[in-house]
Design a protein around this nucleic acid. Structure first.
Lengths: 312, 312
DNA sequence: CTACGGACACAACCATCCGTTGTGGTCTAC
DNA sequence: GTAGACCACAACGGATGGTTGTGTCCGTAG
């Protein structure tokens, strides 16, 4: 199926006559006839009844028409998503299963009229470069990497502190605890697959491990959260850290435990980054939305972040 | 933009390598390379960064990918809408701005998992023929035309009585009434454009006019509800009948009046029609839904329908 | 009844597009 | 350094799609 053909179908359906559709599309009447015939051949159905006064939709044609319109709308949005100038607001999130992704979903619910695109970049350095080149409009990141301050033309505001919880299988030594302190985690293996070395995310866990003497393994390939949960559930000596807001597809029968970490609670500090001169109108709306959400969030008290993190 | 090209893009993005995508699509690696290059040329953006270990998405490519997937989903639904066997439930409604259309919207809200297509056929005769041929699965119609009983293989159930109101401009003689009786309408011109002679809809208004001595003009072309409202608002001697449930785009400054009609209230009797042997699984759900809605609707009391209408 | 005009389909021709095979360049791993 | 993996470029052939010219059907005017 070709989109030009679909467009021809919609035009012909609206005009009611192939000739008029041909004029509108600036092609010959015979071309319209051939396109419609090809579409009908491809679908295996007759879409128009041809009469001497024009062409009327068959019942199949009527059923197909709204889908055809939708197809053209989606195609238009797809093209717009990469069109320079007036394209949708493009936001970088660190991963799909942690808080910024949820913030963007909430923003979309609050402002469904704003077109959004979400991408996932490698690290804060890549994000800053993309912000400066105008390839993205905003980025949720922990700023900044140790020893690497943000450039002057990049602005940022802390938008969310995401508390981490311990996730264990039922046979883990800490599985029965109502809560654990960070100090209690020392000596226990904590497995964080999917954390790519060299990113600010890895720097966070490096700092967390160093400060409290934890054994955090960021190695190994990431086979997805299913594989992670399977392994954690089956391995008594293994646990992982996870946002308390993460909504997982909870596997049945694994009996996993989520245990709050206290004294202090490690929180992952998400900031919104944007370029000082970015003119995208929706960026203002996004910043206002996040500020409003931030104001309503209660302070969680005794928390920990790395020393290189910009204070709130 | 061509859907095969989009499909190639999605396959290549998922595979991460053009060769693997080519194998999956059963074409040569060079064909994939050319298709992607053509897509990039058409969009004016680079979608992949080519490396010796494969091809990774650029930021533009990441932004485009979900739109591309959506495009393929919509295309699949579009094809399914005319595929014989296992196609969406196809329902005929009499017009988009009266009650059955609202019933279908409510059904869609209650069962979003059921794929629906809505068409509008000429009259109950056409609908019955389409039901018997399997082209549609259900039809909202007033059954039956006078003297023309439904065939034995078509079943029906009364699902909704739609009360009619009088719609007038501010200078109409009845504009200030809180309600009017049908008898009071005698002698006033009532204009119903868009009612096609020969349909069961026209038969309803013929009967209504004959029984109460009304002057109902079903003539003239239908230029849409905007034109109807404009004319009614500006013409003191003209009124029209309209469902009380109709949600109009209410023109500003026209000061139109909706006046209930009583003693008795004319109601338009909508029934659901379907073929006795139709095996579509969603048809059962639709009938159950309508029966449930029907049970919760209060009886409106003193109403009128033509004598040829199947009793409730 | 006939002639005309409007509207769509079919046929032939031609340009362009698309896919294939063959080849080259580049990066990585050993 | 060399082999392997991967993608791009070039050349060729078939298919696709557009145009012009023509045919057929139908409704209408005279």
């Amino acid at each position: 199926m070709d989109l030009d053909t679909v467009r021809t179908f919609v035009t012909a359906a609206d005009a009611g006559r192939f000739q008029a559709a041909a004029a509108e599309l600036a092609v010959s009447q015979q071309a319209v006839s051939k396109r419609i015939a090809a579409l009908e051949r491809g679908l295996g159905t007759r879409l128009f009844t041809r009469t001497a006064r024009g062409a009327r939709l068959t019942i199949d044609g009527q059923a197909f028409l709204p889908h055809a319109r939708e197809l053209l709308r989606v195609a238009e949005r797809a093209e717009a998503s990469v069109r320079p100038g007036r394209r949708p607001l493009r936001v970088d999130v660190i991963a799909s299963r942690i808080a910024p992704s949820g913030l963007m979903r909430a923003f979309h619910r609050a402002h469904p009229e704003i077109d959004l695109d979400v991408v996932m970049l490698f690290d804060v350095g890549t994000a800053v470069a993309a912000l400066r080149s105008g390839t993205i409009d905003a980025s949720f990141r922990a700023v900044a990497m140790p020893g690497r301050p943000l450039p002057e033309d990049i602005e940022s505001v802390r938008v969310l502190d995401e508390p981490l919880q311990l996730l264990t299988g039922p046979t883990h030594a800490l599985a029965v605890a109502r809560s654990v302190t960070v100090a209690q985690l020392a000596g226990h293996r904590i497995w964080m697959p999917g954390i790519v070395p060299g990113t600010e995310w890895a720097a966070y866990y490096d700092d967390l491990g160093a400060e409290f003497g934890l054994t955090i393994e960021a190695t190994g390939p990431n086979f997805g959260s299913d594989a992670l949960l399977d392994t954690v559930a089956d391995t008594p000596a293994l646990a992982t850290l996870m946002s308390e807001q993460t909504r997982l597809v909870w596997p049945a029968g694994h009996d996993l435990r989520r245990i709050p970490v206290i004294g202090p609670t490690p929180v992952y500090p998400h900031s919104l980054l944007w370029h000082r001169d970015n003119p995208h109108p929706a960026l203002v709306t996004l910043r206002a939305h996040l500020t409003a959400v931030r104001a309503t969030a209660a302070d969680t008290g005794d928390t920990w972040t790395p020393g290189w993190v910009t204070p709130r």
